[in-house]
């Protein structure tokens, strides 16, 4: 039995503007090391909201969240930032790269922030990740000189730089065409199967979801499956 790396314990969340609407109701589930999990559900059912809570960026909720067995409740903003830096890799629907920095520097930034290795080693690792994703030749370009699929692979490389416990993605293929979506999916699959990387991916694409190890289906703020 692989250890639990992420556990949601009866998470509730409501938005209060303009009126109080409960968005998440009693969310309970856990993810073990090496799991490749997808979250699906209708638009507006609360998938993104849940993912922001799980990634520690949103702290306004009830219930508890354990990452690596440690409760995230009551942690300070700086401590949560450290958790995100060390343990979570995030891939967004829109690529969200820093246009002021080259591709390689974008990938390196979280590693430099963690400062577990020297700058040289971080750079070497960043190259390794880019190579793994087949875009090492783009390393010195600026992000706005890349195609959408390439950008998303850079974002994945960035998410991988600190060897996170888990990679989270909010519709990472949602903005890509079929071919590029396929490439990104294959990257995830390889990460899960070859490197035993845990992944939690929100998706609309049922075909995509069907090919993951486990599907969490949501409806109206609840997990139904």
């Amino acid at each position: 039995m692989e250890p639990k790396i992420l556990e949601a314990k009866s998470i509730f969340k409501s938005f209060h503007t303009p009126i109080t609407i409960p968005v998440l109701k009693d969310i309970n589930f856990s993810i073990n090391r090496g799991d490749f999990v997808s979250i699906t559900g209708k638009s507006g059912c609360g998938k993104s909201t849940l993912l922001y809570i799980l990634s520690t960026m949103d702290t306004d909720y009830e219930g508890d969240l354990l990452i690596d067995g440690i409760s995230m409740r009551g942690k300070k903003e700086g401590e949560l930032a450290k958790v995100r830096n060390e343990k979570i890799g995030f891939v967004f629907q829109f690529h969200y790269l820093l246009n002021e920095f080259s591709v390689i520097k974008n990938v390196m930034l979280p590693g430099l922030k963690l400062a577990a290795m020297s700058d040289k080693e971080v750079e070497a690792r960043a190259y390794e990740k880019l190579k793994m994703l087949g875009i090492e030749n783009e390393a010195l370009k600026l992000p706005n000189q890349l195609s959408g699929g390439q950008k998303q692979r850079v974002a994945i490389a960035r998410a991988l730089i600190n060897d996170p416990l888990i990679i989270m993605g909010d519709e990472p293929t949602g903005n890509l065409d079929k071919k590029n979506g396929e490439i990104v999916f294959n990257v995830f699959k390889e990460l899960a199967e070859v490197y035993h990387q845990s992944l939690l991916i929100v998706t609309h694409d049922n075909e995509f979801a069907a090919r993951t190890h486990r599907i969490i289906e949501m409806e109206d703020g609840k997990i139904i499956n």
């Binding site: 960026m57 930032a81 995100r84 969200y96 820093l98 930034l109 922030k113 963690l114 960035r158």
Partner: peptide, 11 residues
């Protein structure tokens, strides 16, 4: 992005 990837408010 900086915040999502681990930079704190202080940073």
């Amino acid at each position: 992005i900086l915040k999502a990837t681990g930079f704190s408010g202080k940073d």
